[in-house]
Design a protein around this nucleic acid. Structure first.
Lengths: 207, 207, 207, 207
DNA sequence: GATGAATGAGATTTCATTCAT
DNA sequence: GATGAATGAAATCTCATTCAT
């Protein structure tokens, strides 16, 4: 078995992370045990430790992973769109997400990260770095809209922060309530509210 | 014929909860230990168990507590105000909150409740009950504003849900980032955005 | 059971240390397990940790303990004796020690401390402090003998260091070989060799 | 018809042992890991197991090794010398040893052997065999000195045992204290003390 | 009623050894 | 023959909860 390719190892790491995410989603970071993750992976506990130095490291890698592909995907979808449609694309990406148990579980883990990061500098650093990128994404779109003349004279950075606060607030509730129709409505209302606020004359008419 | 009066016991329970909140805020529910809480209370571990059957029960009681006085306080402040000012009062109540470590800690515990409640039916029931009241509060204000003719034809229930999502989103970030000036700006922007969305003609001018 | 006297706790600590010493003696520090110590003590693992923060701490306390009573005992036996007889008393104290398995085990632990202390600063500090006292003891006796005119112009400090090196060397072998008659002979020869070296005219005749 | 010559294998074994010695010296037998040794050797773990059946076996072979060349070297240096000078040569061989970290590390391993051997019959057998040779070496020199008429009527075997006890005692302390000047002084004093004890008239004058 | 010593089930992590490739 | 991924049996330490005093 040894002398495996890097690709194999990378696949294995991703595999473990996938199962770990499921466990963390179901039980929470603290309550999920390595035994359980190993069981789900069909590996021994020791093997897990060959890929990750600690449960904490798995947690952190989990947070880092997925960001890249998410951004790549958005970049593709955004290509050539005006600011308003970029925002709508982003919002609908979330809005149309089906609330599978995997996705809700992942959302819970994501929420837990925020809490956890408040108490752990390593996690915090990763989390803040990651969020800086998300904030920058929307901030740039808003600036773009301002240049295009469709958005009014808003403070792009603050608007972005508010956007993500709203998004996290929606995730937070849905994580518990798990109601698809509420989720969609919240995003629809949020979309309207947010775009109206950004729009030049404040009524969002032209959008 | 109990040795201590019920009032005394109630005071003691509140006392324990206060200290427990501080511990949970600092370390998180799982990491905070009974030993630590007992130490802070200046009581023995055994004594704590005379008031609460388990750590989990303390957690749940904590979630319940505080709501009543919060509502009482708001009811007093709201007396006789038109809907718009009720909302502004509510928002400013949060906005003007100083980010002391106690308050931020309590915020973290609040966030943790949401996560925790997703995985525990007992906690969930309490949490959902509690949130129902908060949602109803803003829902009623919105309905009132509609009757007053200052709010447009919005869906009061959804608006209220969105409001609290936004609020929780703000708390979530601030719980980690702990930046007073960001906190205030987010609330200021949220206030404007939310009231504009509610206002009759959509530009918030009259508000 | 709680609210026990300090004396009770102290007795318990000593009890645990006694059993730990036996385990360490038999298996060595690393191989001895907390489970085993607990079993021998007739306590639970958790109870042990109520008295000592870690296996390492037990080890260190073990090293500290016993020194005091040893010194007290020697001080009593030494009272009023001339330097030569103090030394002879000290040497015979060791020489006449019966090589019970407890004593040999304790000796092994003592030897292990030296090794361990080379690699661990905390242990080293305790060990060096302790040894400084032993070295000072013999150094003072030698100085006393010089003032009495029975010891020649030797370097008291070095002689003391050499004495204890010799002692440790004897313990080291006996710890493995476990032969009472060899042990006694080694001490007899050591006594003669050492006192001859210290004596004024170098032949030890007057001693 | 093996692919590699026996000589190659032997060299490889020696190579591994050399690196293992360094690891054991630094961390101790138990704490040193096979991973670490393999890393240092620039080999895989599996390869190591091709040369030694277990970590324990490496330890034992390590104990055996080195003795032969040490004895050969001494035999050469001793050639034609009278007993007293043989002893002085031996003592100075140690005394002039520079306390490099390798040497001190090796000393620690040597000390650990003693402890370890007390608890493991296999190790003990090897250790006792080895030490029998060292004791015999000095014993023979003492007998030789007695025949030459320069040593008094001492018990050669006991003197030899005492000599090595003293030597080990010195190594034990130096292994921890790591002070070159103390090391040299201890050996100088030991040399004088020991030779005086052996000398015919007990004052070592003629030596 | 209060106390805090004791319990004991588990959690994370380590590592010598094996063996499929 | 070499490799190093995988195993799995420990080992240390934690802590909510109980209950004798």
């Amino acid at each position: 078995m040894p002398k495996v390719s890097d690709a194999y190892k990378e696949k294995k790491r991703a595999d473990i992370l996938r199962h770990a995410l499921a466990c963390f989603g179901e039980k929470g970071f603290q309550s999920a045990t390595i035994d359980e993750i190993a069981l789900r992976c069909g590996m021994s506990k020791g093997a897990i430790y060959g890929y990750f130095a600690s449960k904490e490291e798995m947690y952190i890698r989990l947070m880092e992973s997925g960001t890249e592909e998410m951004f790549r995907m958005l970049r593709d979808d955004f290509a050539g769109l005006p600011a308003v449609h970029k925002l709508r694309t982003l919002i609908r990406h979330y809005r149309n997400q089906e609330l599978t148990s995997e996705w809700v579980g992942a959302g819970r883990v994501h929420m837990e990260f925020w809490i956890h990061s408040a108490r752990n500098e390593d996690v915090k650093r990763v989390m803040v770095d990651r969020y800086e990128r998300f904030v920058a994404l929307v901030e740039e779109i808003v600036e773009e809209g301002k240049r295009e003349g469709v958005f009014g004279d808003v403070h792009a950075r603050e608007m972005s922060e508010l956007f993500w606060a709203m998004a996290d607030g929606i995730f937070l509730r849905i994580t518990v309530l798990d109601r698809q129709e509420l989720y969609e409505k919240l995003w629809d209302d949020a979309e309207e509210m947010f775009l109206r606020t950004l729009s030049r004359n404040g009524d969002g008419a032209a959008l």
